[in-house]
């Protein structure tokens, strides 16, 4: 399914120079050795703005090789601006083979989702991270948050969850839900929905996190324990929907709400576009009877 491209002249393979890649690889090795620990690295300027995946793109550039097949998703979809541009960036600068199929990819760069299809040991998941510090909203001082990580003082994380229950009656944090990695470091999983948190636990694939503006890299090695923080009497739980996917009928995937018209009609569809397409190719279908909406339109709502 993958497409092969010709690299452009005048760029080093995958844009970054080799010394920069070595520096990033060293940071990645350290991050893998200390699961959940934020390793500072010399983040470079990339030809896209901060907040669009400069951290993820640098990690991908540092780990990608000629044999890799790259998939890029943004909120689960392969065909949004961010995903298309990053895929094209690596096609041009590295002549990379790219794909939209989760099963065919060896490197998946993601913004805000984990694919529904379980990942394998030979795959790498690269997250784009806007704010790597989970303690930031409770403690603004960087010196203090580093000390809190070093001394494992994570009481304030529960203060935030307490506050949620006191105000809303349940833990109202729905994305970027803090996790404890390998029983040691509290980590921000990047703004993935908490629906995806259980997928991180004991995942066979290597998970790498890159924050370009904050210049931090962290990682979860394969088969590492990842626990979402909670209270004994308010255990962690994920979102539920009353609907199934309107296109493929899936009842176990993360759904996006798509507004159809001005009369308040709406439908729920899988946010993971590849998963939805695969299921439809196998003959599954949901309850949507109207005209098939343009896929691009769906994903903009996502």
């Amino acid at each position: 399914m993958s497409e092969q491209h010709e690299a452009m002249e005048g760029y080093n393979f995958a844009y970054l120079d080799e010394q920069t890649k070595r520096m990033i690889r060293r940071a990645i090795l350290k991050a893998v050795a200390i699961p959940g620990y934020q390793v500072p690295f010399g983040g470079r300027e990339m030809p896209l703005p901060y907040g669009w995946g400069t951290g993820g793109i640098q990690i991908t550039a540092a780990v990608i090789g000629h044999d890799d097949v790259l998939k890029v998703i943004d909120q689960g979809a392969d065909d949004t601006t961010n995903a298309v541009n990053i895929r094209r960036f690596f096609s041009r600068t590295a002549g990379m083979a790219t794909t939209t199929k989760t099963v065919a990819a060896s490197i998946i760069q993601t913004r805000h989702r984990i694919p529904e299809q379980p990942l394998r040991e030979d795959q790498v998941l690269v997250y784009q991270v806007p704010i790597p510090e989970p303690l930031r909203f409770m403690e603004p001082r960087e010196v203090e948050t580093r000390k809190m990580h070093a001394l494992r003082e994570y009481g304030v994380m529960h203060v935030k969850l307490y506050e949620d229950i006191a105000r809303f009656g349940h833990i109202a944090t729905t994305y970027s839900y803090p996790v404890l990695v390998n029983d040691r470091y509290v980590m921000s999983p990047s703004p993935i929905p908490k629906f995806d948190n259980p997928k991180m636990d004991m995942m066979p694939a290597l998970q790498l996190f890159g924050a370009g503006r904050e210049k931090r890299i962290y990682a979860i090695p394969p088969y590492t324990k990842v626990k979402s923080l909670d209270f004994d009497d308010y255990p962690f739980e994920v979102q539920q929907w009353e609907e199934n996917c309107a296109l493929c009928g899936a009842d176990n995937s993360y759904l996006d709400e798509v507004v159809l018209d001005d009369e308040g009609n709406r439908m729920f569809v899988c946010s993971d576009s590849d998963y939805c397409e695969e299921r439809r190719a196998l003959g599954e279908h949901g309850g949507f009877t109207g005209e098939q909406p343009d896929l691009e339109e769906q994903n903009h709502v996502a």
Binding site: V156, H158, Y162, D232, Y234
Partner: peptide
């Protein structure tokens, strides 16, 4: 509650 949570209280 902060100090209690800091020393391990996990029951809301």
């Amino acid at each position: 509650g902060e100090r209690m949570m800091a020393v391990g209280a996990r029951h809301y």
